[in-house]
Design a protein around this nucleic acid. Sequence first.
DNA 1: CCCTCGTCTATTGGATACATTGTTGCGCAC
DNA 2: GTGCGCAACAATGTATCCAATAGACGAGGG
Lengths: 231, 231
Amino acid sequence: MASVSTEPAPILEPARHGAAGSRIADELRQSILSGAYEPGARIRQEDLADLHGASRLPVREALRVLEGEGLVTVVANTGAWVSRLSLAECEEMYQIRERVEPLLLRYNVPLMSDDFIDELEALATQIELSADVEDFITLDRRFHLSMYGAAETNLLGDIVLRLWNRTHHYRRAFTRVFSRGNDQSVHYEHHLLVSAIRRRDLGEAERVLAGHIRRTRLELARHPEVFSHHP
Amino acid sequence: MASVSTEPAPILEPARHGAAGSRIADELRQSILSGAYEPGARIRQEDLADLHGASRLPVREALRVLEGEGLVTVVANTGAWVSRLSLAECEEMYQIRERVEPLLLRYNVPLMSDDFIDELEALATQIELSADVEDFITLDRRFHLSMYGAAETNLLGDIVLRLWNRTHHYRRAFTRVFSRGNDQSVHYEHHLLVSAIRRRDLGEAERVLAGHIRRTRLELARHPEVFSHHP
DNA sequence: CCCTCGTCTATTGGATACATTGTTGCGCAC
DNA sequence: GTGCGCAACAATGTATCCAATAGACGAGGG
């Protein structure tokens, strides 16, 4: 914003003072999740600064934030890279999710309105119809994470969101190689999950969700090629 | 380090270039955990900078790191405070631990040597003999966290460590009000846990640990006065 | 021909200086 | 006496400048 001389309307400037670090962190997070940066990609501070029209200082803060979220790996005096996961680490993430997301679901189900559950059902159907891999992972992410938005405390929600973000790239890569199988299990599980939620059957909802994550983890383990590094 | 003119031996200087942010983060984290800062205490950037003989820049990085860990709450253009937990949030943390720590234990038990298990047993006995609250929480923390140091991937270990850190202050406060009860359950559970580990009985070890955390959570809920804010 | 050491440059780390924001306390009006 | 508003201050956010480090490249020797 500083380099551009023709900046007539500061009114439409949503970026207020004191938000540069957070804003850059948000945008870089989105870029990483969108796949614009591959795991292992180098992140240069000055590039980011120029890109966002800021100095390197808020960029460094943003990198620290994303480092804390596990999305970026920073080495002192050397540089920053998009974090990379091994198959073992990714499986560990899924095992954590398997234990933790059912708990988060338990917190949220009592707070869901019937209308909201209808929306979930519609989303599950929409996922079935998704043609493209990018559509699928976007809708699938929305389906699951929207279930977790009702709780009044968001500590667990934040932890789960970070787990999703750290594995997002591998979910995309895995979906790409797996989608040819034309396996309908995912969709069945989604509908079973909505059904259990509608009946407010917490135990069953927990079981279905845990099984859903577990099955994904086992499928993932059958495709280690997703994790082959090509430096 | 820069202001002191009489610095004859640069050999004993462990603080190298590029480590100020991490160093300050580590020291501030220790200060918060030690109880030197109460939850809700204001953290002024300039004070920290002077205290560590650095400028505000690495201090800001440190604050971002600790914010990511949940230990510090930063409000833009306003300031930073030591994070505060409500009873509901603390219970949520314990519920997460209840589900996640047994998994981490499962990862670690097969990697423990018999000698190490002897050390755990000795630690459990030492905890029984601890006189003072500060001793107890230090030894108890070491007892539990040392169990988690063997795993080759440390993703889950980091998450658990953060959960411990975020609740550390309340564990201290709670122990202070609870220690008068003279309840031996904690120690029985510790010894049962070591016993299950020694037999390499993963299922039983998981159950005992989950029960241990669960019981602590329920006790905690009976002492809401620990969370009363006194501003 | 290859290995090693030295230099050099690109990039990051840190400090100082300045702009902006939030807050607090005082004064004035009602 | 109370409530609103303005102003001065204090603390944070940002930019620019300088220092230190690590990787790369090339020259020299084995």
